[in-house]
Amino acid sequence: MPNKRPLSLGAGALAVTVVAVAAVGLSQHVISSPQTELACSLNEADLGEFVEIPGGGFVMGVDPVFPEEGPPRKVLVSPFRLQAHEVTNSQFAAFVAETGYVTEAERNGGSAQFSESDTPEVFLSWWSLDADATWRTPDGAGSDLVGRDLHPVVHVTLNDAKAYAAWVGGRIPTEVEWEYAASMGLFDPMDPHSGIRAPDGSARANIWTGLFPVLNSRRDGFAGTAPVGCYEPGLTGAYDMIGNVWEWTDSPFAPAVPRFTIKGGSFLCSEDYCQRYRVAARESLERDFSTAHIGFRVVKSIGDTDG
């Protein structure tokens, strides 16, 4: 069995608890075997492509559901370039191979992981700190990246993400930039759910489908992470802005709150519970903590050269 211990109620645990309450819940292990997944993804040759996000204005925090999402306000944004997909395991592996970088989960005792629970009605029982969970071993001891090269890298902290971004000559987006790009990508700006399904009911994102938190029907093809690019891109040309994994931003969550904002929801967000896959939704985590369902993507300011 993986070397796991319950999360204490320290600062890191409180942040993980916030994410758990808002975004996840299950009574069984949810990571699906690569062999059972849909055969879909971007080609390796397409990795690292960026889409142009023009400057402009938008209303941030539209249709807020939770108090931290509002109020709606007008924001101006400078143009930037957005990586078209979440950073993959293969991309992160190339960074590690060249630089020798060691992630904080590898150095500091593991990462937050989902586990089977005998008391699924108790949300704290869904999470444990798995000392063997790292980006290399996403399911803990005995797991590896075979068949997952094109899945988004997880178990990475904001500090890890920023180190990778600097290596490729980019940076982590601000919350404003992330939400602006995601809102521009919506198929129907008047429907905050248009990012998860098409009018004919077909899936546009990897979220929790079925009865939350008891049954994941895998109606969208996945129970865990999906390879990047399995669903049609949004109107900007970017993939998986909605669902799959939460994405780090470089913006503090709130004044005097020592956590940073994450956006986009994950494969553990459902329609019948948290709905955190909406572009206005936001959650938070300490910059030096990581989980099984948080990754990132990179942006570049206009004028930056490719690294």
Rank of each mutant, 00 (worst) to 15 (best):
E86T: 05
H29I: 08
N89P: 03
P199C: 12
F50I: 02
I172T: 04
P189D: 10
G224M: 06
N159E: 09
L186H: 05
G265H: 13
S32T: 04
F66I: 06
G170T: 04
L158F: 07
G147K: 03
H155W: 02
E68V: 09
Y164M: 03
L7N: 03
A165F: 00
V156A: 03
G303C: 10
A39M: 06
G265E: 07
I294D: 01
R259T: 14
F187I: 11
G307L: 06
R278H: 13
A181C: 15
L211S: 14
D118P: 02
N89Q: 05
G70P: 05
L158N: 00
T137A: 14
P199T: 14
A205W: 02
G100A: 05
R107K: 13
V298D: 02
D191Y: 12
A292E: 14
W127V: 11
Q35G: 01
G56P: 08
R204S: 05
P64W: 04
W127P: 00
R81N: 07
D250H: 10
T119K: 12
C40F: 03
T174L: 08
S284Q: 12
T291Y: 08
F253Q: 10
W248L: 10
P233I: 11
A11K: 13
T99N: 07
E52K: 11
A198N: 12
N159D: 09
P199W: 13
V24N: 06
S90Q: 06
V21P: 00
P199F: 14
V21I: 15
C230Y: 03
D191N: 15
F114K: 00
A292H: 11
V122F: 09
S251I: 12
D160W: 02
A39S: 10
G48L: 05
E286T: 13
Q113C: 11
D139I: 04
R81D: 03
V19K: 02
H151C: 10
N43C: 07
I302W: 10
T225S: 09
N3H: 14
D46W: 03
G48R: 03
E286L: 14
G100D: 07
P227S: 10
E44V: 15
P189N: 15
A97L: 03
L145H: 09
S183F: 07
A20M: 10
E49T: 12
C269R: 04
